[in-house]
Design a protein around this nucleic acid. Structure first.
Length: 569
RNA sequence: UGCCCCGUGGUGUAACGGCAGCACACCUGACUCUGGCUCAGGUAAUCGAGGUUCGAGUCCUUGCGGGGCAGCCA
């Protein structure tokens, strides 16, 4: 096949938009919006929506994307959330320019739309309480019945609605409802509530209002007011689309956006619903919204993820209508891929084992040349001090090495990266516990820099630090938050928190890192050679106490070999 | 049980009605001063049954399976 054009295939939403553009629908405009409710922190699922909406705007000439806060329920919302959302969207690399909006900006306008609906005989004030409304709504299989207040006169409705606004009534005593069809097979169309009384202080409008519009009413009209062309939302709003269109048709607005639904993101071994995340925060299972184990944007940021890696992830998972569960391994892949290119390499020993080089001069210190990033020569090199007493990783020594173990063992020679070949000549153990507490080795002075002039090869290369020169550090290792791929799978199963991974956080307090990490700033990212990617924690780390988070481990084929070896036994 | 939506390798996603592709994961091998990276290769999929058609993952019918909807939440 001859490929004349190499444009990547479009997802179904971008295809719709491309078609619209071809037909010059909306005068060729593309205008999207990202409309979070400020009632929690953004997570990786929101990142998908953000990348979609801002991405589509950016891909199309003249396209723009609004940031709009859907703040119609003051009882759940807070200014803390709007600030964090703005920060997160910005951090992800998107810019809403001067297009920052709030549904609360439109409260007066929305009220007038409601009045218009009443005047058209398409809305009425209902005095039924919540319980009664539910009963009158009918069920999935049975039609509902009309509210006794459905036939109030326009005048009476106008009067009542005005008094609702004026604060004459208590919460719950009246609602404004759209007059549609109590027998509709779509429950959303059975005279939905569009305004409720809520004597609550709003984070932006204060006490100006005591009635607030419902989502279905506010959202379509906010979209319309802003001139949105494509209103992209998640699948659970599919049944709301009929209502979305109903309001815009009845009110005869000039701008009628098209609602398009896509499947929200599910990720294995975690939960991604605001309610559940909030539960984890409030009940203390994690340290906060930005706990590095949380798949919130702020958690991922603190964990060491880059915006690029997250955007890349969102691009690769695609957009479709099918319910799916993305493998967390793909997220881990995208951050490894990014950090492999940009993270400076450094040597750090997480679980130190003391090594004495018996034939190395007591007071000698050599500065070894180490490459900062083999993937990027422009990052140069640095000096790493080498001396007689070193630390290596405890797991890099086995007194009785299994098959295919290429690291240090009694009598075996390995390379210390950028330094010398060493051979293990002695093992010192704790007399009580039998634990190995120190190794004695000899080095071959001819192998300085890591190569042997006689062409001798070694199978293993270990990372190390000089005991006297290394810095102490605390390292936090994170594992998946849940032990089950889908902790919420069973409908009537146990609470999702029963599947919490008890070992999702491991704190190592006696780590040793090479001296070049002195003064490392919060947020700095490194590759600890042979261990993984780490970043300086933005909360706990300080000048005199380094704390690093493991973003993700390196791929570890030895761990796989060892695992299959154990299985065979 | 009413209405709406969705079924393509293990996972995610492509394929004007015309050779089922890509990525992750997994398994080999090569290379390597990171058991990393890179490179080469491999295993593996159209939910079932009918129908339309020269030809169906794609269109139609139907069955099965999954998800959503009965907030004065969004």
């Amino acid at each position: 096949m001859t490929t004349t054009d190499s444009t990547p295939p479009l997802d179904f939403i971008r295809s719709i938009i491309a078609e619209d553009l071809k037909k010059n629908k909306n005068d060729g405009r593309v205008h999207t919006r990202f409309p979070p409710e400020p009632n929690g922190y953004l997570h990786i699922g929101h990142a998908k929506a953000i990348c979609l909406n801002f991405g589509i705007a950016a891909e199309n000439k003249g396209g723009v994307c609004n940031l709009r806060f859907d703040d119609t329920n003051p009882s759940k919302e807070d200014i803390e959330y709007v600030e964090s959302i703005k920060e997160d969207v910005r951090w992800l690399g998107f810019n809403w320019g001067d297009r920052l909006f709030y549904a609360s900006d439109y409260f007066e306008q929305l009220y007038q739309y409601a009045v218009q609906l009443i005047k058209a005989g398409k809305a009425y004030v209902c005095d039924l309480n919540a319980q009664q409304i539910r009963e009158y709504r009918g069920t999935l299989t049975e039609p509902g019945k009309d509210s006794p207040y459905r036939s109030r006169s326009v005048e009476e409705n106008l009067d009542l609605f005005e008094r609702m606004r004026a604060g004459e009534f208590e919460d719950g005593s009246h609602v404004l409802r759209a007059k549609i069809d109590m027998a509709s097979p779509n429950l959303n169309m059975r005279d939905p509530v569009i305004y409720r009384i809520l004597h609550a202080e709003h984070h932006r409008t204060g006490n100006k209002w005591c009635i607030y519009p419902m989502y279905d009413f506010a959202h379509c009209l906010s979209d319309s007011v802003e001139g949105i062309t494509h209103s992209i939302c998640t699948l659970e709003f599919e049944n709301n689309r009929e209502l979305y269109d109903w309001f815009l048709n009845e009110l005869n607005v000039e701008s009628h956006p098209q609602q398009i639904e896509f499947a929200r993101l599910n990720l294995s071994y975690t939960v991604l619903s605001k309610r559940k995340l909030l539960e984890l925060v409030e009940e203390g299972y994690v340290s906060g919204w930005d706990d590095p184990r949380m798949l919130t944007i702020s958690g991922l940021r603190r964990r060491g993820y880059t915006p690029e890696s997250i955007r890349n992830f969102c691009e690769r998972i695609g957009v479709a209508k099918r319910d799916s569960m993305v493998d967390i391994a793909l997220l881990e892949h995208t951050i490894r891929e990014d950090l492999n290119q940009r993270a400076p390499r450094v040597m750090a020993v997480l679980d130190p084992l003391r090594v004495v080089i018996d034939n190395y001069p007591e007071d000698q210190v050599e500065e070894m040349d180490a490459i900062n990033n083999p993937e990027d020569p422009s990052m140069g090199s640095r000096k790493v001090p080498f001396s007689r007493v070193l630390y290596i990783e405890r797991e890099d020594f086995r007194e009785d090495p299994p098959k295919k173990f290429f690291r240090l063992a009694p009598g075996r020679e390995v390379r210390l990266r950028y330094a010398y070949f060493i051979t293990c000549v002695g093992v010192v153990k704790d007399e009580q516990t039998g634990e190995v507490i120190e190794l004695h080795c000899t080095y071959d002075p001819e192998t300085r820099g890591g190569d042997s002039p006689d062409g001798r090869k070694v199978r293993g290369t270990l990372h190390w630090v000089s005991a006297a020169h290394s810095l102490k550090a605390e390292v936090r290792l994170y594992d998946r938050l849940f032990v089950k791929a889908n902790p919420t799978a069973e409908k009537d199963g146990p609470d999702f928190k029963t599947y919490l991974n008890p070992n999702s956080l491991e704190i190592l307090t006696s780590c040793r890192v090479e001296p070049s990490l002195a003064g490392a700033a919060p947020g700095n990212r490194y590759q600890f050679e042979r261990r993984g990617y780490f970043c300086v924690d933005s909360v706990y780390s300080s000048d005199d106490a380094l704390v690093l988070n493991r973003t993700v481990s390196l791929r570890d084929s030895w761990a796989k070999i060892e695992k299959t070896q154990k299985k065979k036994k």
